[in-house]
């Protein structure tokens, strides 16, 4: 390898390092914004003030979904550590169900419940046919929501 080629290779490494450095700095500066949602634990830890818009994400707690009259719906978002109850009025996606991942956009009310404007379902990375799930459930190897982050 001649000197000229070596110099060019050094230039390429510099490009990659510079690019990675710049991206790293930008991401570090934006860290809070890059997070798509807060977990209920984050909500308590960060002392989010009422009225401030943010997204909350976690699992829909078991037996927490209550449908009111019209399109009103209440449920609890849990991360296994903390819980936040959510009020919402509107349609929920097809995947919305107890034990499933959910992300809600809205704000906390002074009473501590989360008033949602939008509810999205987050599905996990498991893919299997229904029969396999039934077999897993029968044999007791099924863990609901286990793969959920």
């Amino acid at each position: 390898m001649n000197a000229r080629k070596k110099r060019r290779l050094l230039f390429v490494s510099f490009l990659l390092l510079g690019g990675a450095g710049a991206a790293g700095l930008a991401i570090a500066a934006l860290q809070d914004n890059v997070m798509y949602f807060y977990s209920p634990t984050d909500v308590y830890a960060k002392h989010v003030s009422p009225g401030q818009a943010f997204r909350i994400g976690g699992l829909v707690a078991k037996h927490s979904v209550h449908k009111g009259r019209g399109a009103e719906i209440t449920f609890t978002v849990t991360d296994g550590n903390k819980n936040v109850s959510v009020d919402y009025k509107g349609d929920v996606p097809a995947l919305f169900r107890e034990g499933q991942g959910v992300v809600a956009m809205g704000r906390l009310t002074p009473s501590g419940t989360f008033q949602a404007d939008q509810v999205l379902a987050k599905h996990d990375e498991k893919y299997m046919p229904p029969e396999v799930v039934d077999a897993l459930k029968r044999s007791g190897h099924w863990e609901e929501g286990k793969a959920q982050q």
Binding site: V34, M35, Y36, F37, S39, K122, E125, Y127, M128, A147
Partner: peptide, 21 residues
């Protein structure tokens, strides 16, 4: 980061989370 997009299914600790079918 926390994302709405689900996590990695193939290159995942504990092997792929996708049924062979």
């Amino acid at each position: 980061w926390t994302t709405l997009h689900q996590g990695e299914s193939i290159l995942r600790r504990g092997g792929p989370a996708i049924s062979p079918v």
